[in-house]
Design a protein around this nucleic acid. Sequence first.
DNA 1: CCACTAAATGAATGCCATTCATTTATTAGA
DNA 2: TCTAATAAATGAATGGCATTCATTTAGTGG
Lengths: 245, 245
Amino acid sequence: MPAAAATGTTAGKPGTSAADGVSPGASADTSKGGRRRAGRPSAALLDQAGITSAALELVGRKGYDGLTMAALARQLDVAPSALYNHVRSKREVLLLVEDHLTALVDVSGFAAGPWEDAVRTWAWSYRDVFAQHTPLIPVIAVLPVTDAPQTLAMYETVSAAFLAAGFPEERIVSAIVALESFIFGSAYDVTAPADIFDAGSMAAATPHFTAAVRSLAARGDESPADVAFGLGLEALITGLGALRG
Amino acid sequence: MPAAAATGTTAGKPGTSAADGVSPGASADTSKGGRRRAGRPSAALLDQAGITSAALELVGRKGYDGLTMAALARQLDVAPSALYNHVRSKREVLLLVEDHLTALVDVSGFAAGPWEDAVRTWAWSYRDVFAQHTPLIPVIAVLPVTDAPQTLAMYETVSAAFLAAGFPEERIVSAIVALESFIFGSAYDVTAPADIFDAGSMAAATPHFTAAVRSLAARGDESPADVAFGLGLEALITGLGALRG
DNA sequence: CCACTAAATGAATGCCATTCATTTATTAGA
DNA sequence: TCTAATAAATGAATGGCATTCATTTAGTGG
């Protein structure tokens, strides 16, 4: 399970959620509900799906520092101010991206098989997706689920599976939150520089820590972030699993 | 090794960091060692300790949105550009604040008593400190320990205690990282709005999740964030504790 | 008293998200 | 077919931000 970690990122699951496929290009004017009133231009250059995929491409190419409203507009061949006809703020752009990414998290394990395996698959995949998008984590943390349909869909799938696995209803949300907290915190670790624990000139003053760091580095195959995540995840699975009736 | 910590940052030149003298701004940092060269003003208005405490006061009063270099300068009765004689960037200000806060984390439990109790005390305290400073979390995550002496000191204390408790040396860093990841993720939860899980109009589409949320709310005394943190922490303590030889 | 230097200044610079009055393009309905 | 309504795009502001830099200020050791 450890090395496979990296794969999860691409693992978009078709059956995961209620979202239609979307056609990210320039024209997918499906939803955007609301009745039409008077004359209404049909060939809009922008919509939320297009903005979302342009934002994702931009992030992939330039990182989150490169995701500015100006750059986003340029990517879409449009004036920056045009974006505000479709999105209330930059935060809403981040929110659209977040919800899109959540749909990539692998919840397929919850359909069948042991609860432990399903949680493992889900957690590794969840971490892998957001490890490449850590600037979204502060956004997610305060995000009312109402504003993120895909995220809500994921919670429904996971909740149903926890109930089926024998969890008492009043513990389900707490267990999910505990797992998510660990997942988000661990996503940051993945991005940490390799020498983050190098004490440098202070090494002599911190002998126990320095020795611990050195013996950690000695083991070769797995990345430190993966080792720590695996360790914590197994502890959580065992400990939380014991709550089942 | 207390406040002397602050030195290293301005370095870059041999022997430059020294800047002792009489009364600095608001809070005096005692001699920072280093040899003196030529003539040198003794009544500096600013130093890193003063900047740190001004930043903390500002954050307490206006939050992290209010912590701008301009506001910080105003607080210290100084021009914004003056700050850059003592600090390389705003990020370094955040770093100073982070290191100061880390010193507030309660590691006293590691001095004696059972490992489990010490970890519990440490983890709750750690979470509580940073729950009020979540904007620092992305900074901490990528922060080389070299740049944060207090943080390094905490790691040394914790590492020594884990070793004494019977942990194999090569698992210590992983165990600490796993705990920290959980702690940082959980710190975000504390700040989440109470209605974060209200599915609103989508409630009908997510019956299991909605029911789980409702039954959670039913239990009154403890905050949801505390319940989740306690649940996860106990699982981690049990699971990680099993690694001890 | 002079040469040296850390520290403070104030005026730029460039980037950013966001706003707004205005224009453009489309279509429903008369 | 003409017209009124309207969504969407524009381009020029606005105000805030961190940061830079040439310059000035003021102590101090020699």
